Amino acid sequence: MSLPRRTGRTGRRGGFTVFAVVAAVLTALSTATPAHAASGSITGLAGKCVDVAGAGSANGTAVQLYDCNGSNAQIWSNSGDGTLRALGKCLDIADRGTADGAAVQLWDCSGGSNQQWVVSPAHDIVNPAADKCLDVRDNTSANGARLQIWSCSGGANQKWNAPAGGGGGGGGGGTTPSGFVVTEAQFNDMFPNRNPFYTYSGLIAALNAYPGFTNTGSDTVRKQEAAAFLANVNHETGALVYVVEQNTANYPNYCDFSQPYGCPAGQSSYYGRGPIQLSWNFNYKAVGDQLGVDLLNNPWLLETDAAIAWQTGLWYWNTQNGPGTMTPHEAMVNSAGFGETIRSINGALECDGRAPDGVQSRVDAYNRFTSILGVPTGGNLYC
C-alpha cells in the first residue's frame, strides 16, 4: 500500500470594559457546572496548548503555551472537584496570589482556593478566589509564553477550549460528545470490515494532538475534512484492513542513508504503517519528534498502539504537503478541494493521469463518506 513520499515541513500550524466582562463571568460561575469528568488538551492563542514546561512534575514547574504535541504534559483532566490536573498535580497560582500577573504553575493538589478553576460558557477559565482569568502573558503566542492570572478582559489571550462541561472543547453543532464530527456509528458504517486494531477510541484519543483538525470553519467544512481524511485512509489501508504495507519487497527501500541518524532499527524497518501508511526513516524521525515518541528506534509502535498510529496519520494530514503545495488540512479548510489532498499525499505517483484508478478509489470513498455525513462534496475532486 505504501508509496515512497519524501515530505517537507510546511510553515505552520478593542472591546469590553473589565467590569462588564467580570460581571458576565460571575454570572457564568453561578450557572456553569465546574466539571464533568473529562480530560484532553486545553487550547488557546493560535491553537496552541497549555503545556507543563519540560514535562516536569516538580512543584513550581512553569505552565506555558506551546505547540500541541499530544504528550502527557498537555493532557489536563477535570475530575469534578474544580481542579485542572496534569502529570498528577494541579494547576496552581503561585504563592496563592490574587493580583494581576500572578504566575500559574504545577503543584501538589492541596484543595486550596488557588487551585480552583471554572470554565465558563464564554471560554474563560476563572479562579473565583482571585476573580481573575487564566491569561497568556504579554498576549503572545510564542512557544514558552508563561501563563498567569489577570483581570478578565475578554481578550483572545484569555479564551480557551478546555475539557470541562461548562467550557467548549469540541466545536459547534453536529459534533459528538467527544467533539468529533463523525459518530462511532458513522465510523462503523464507513469501515464495516475494519481491522480491530483501528479503533474509534484510538482515533478520538489522537485528536488532542491536532485541535484544528475538523474544528475549522463551518459544520459542512468540518465534516468534509473528516470525510476527506478518512477517504484517503480508506484507500491507503484497504478500508482500514491493513496495518502494515503488504508488499514486503519494498521494505528495504525506505531507509535514506543520507540522514545523519541513519536507520537504527534496521534498513527494512521503515515500511508503511498506520492509517496513512507512514514510510521512510526521515518521516518516522520527524513525527516521533513531534509527538515525543521515539519512533526512529521503535517504529513497531505503529503496529501496537492505535492512538499513536492515528496520530501519525493526523501529523501528515495537518503538517505535511508532500508532493503538493499545501497540507491536506489546508486544502479542505481553504476550499482547494479533495483533489488537492490526493496530490499532497501521493500526487507524484497518482495525479495528472499517472494512476487514475487510485485517484478514483479515493474519490469514490470521499463521495460515500460525505453522503454518510450528510454534506456536499464540494468541487475539484480530482488531481
Rank of each mutant, 00 (worst) to 15 (best):
M1I: 06
R6N: 14
R6I: 13
G11V: 14
R12N: 13
V25T: 03
T33Q: 12
P34I: 10
G40A: 07
L45E: 08
L45P: 01
K48N: 00
A53C: 09
G54N: 14
L65H: 04
N69V: 02
G80V: 07
G82P: 12
L84P: 11
G97Y: 12
T98H: 00
A99R: 03
V104D: 01
L106R: 12
L106P: 12
C109G: 03
C109S: 09
Q116E: 05
Q116M: 11
W117Y: 08
D124L: 02
D131N: 15
C133I: 02
C133V: 05
D138S: 14
D138C: 02
G144V: 02
G144L: 06
S153T: 11
G154C: 07
A156P: 06
G166E: 06
G168A: 13
T175N: 10
T175W: 05
R194Q: 03
F197K: 04
Y198H: 01
S201K: 15
A205R: 14
A209R: 13
Q224H: 07
A227L: 05
N234P: 04
T237W: 08
S258R: 11
G266M: 02
Q267S: 01
Y270W: 08
L291F: 09
P299H: 11
I308C: 01
Y316P: 03
M332G: 12
S335I: 01
G353A: 08
V375F: 11
T377G: 10
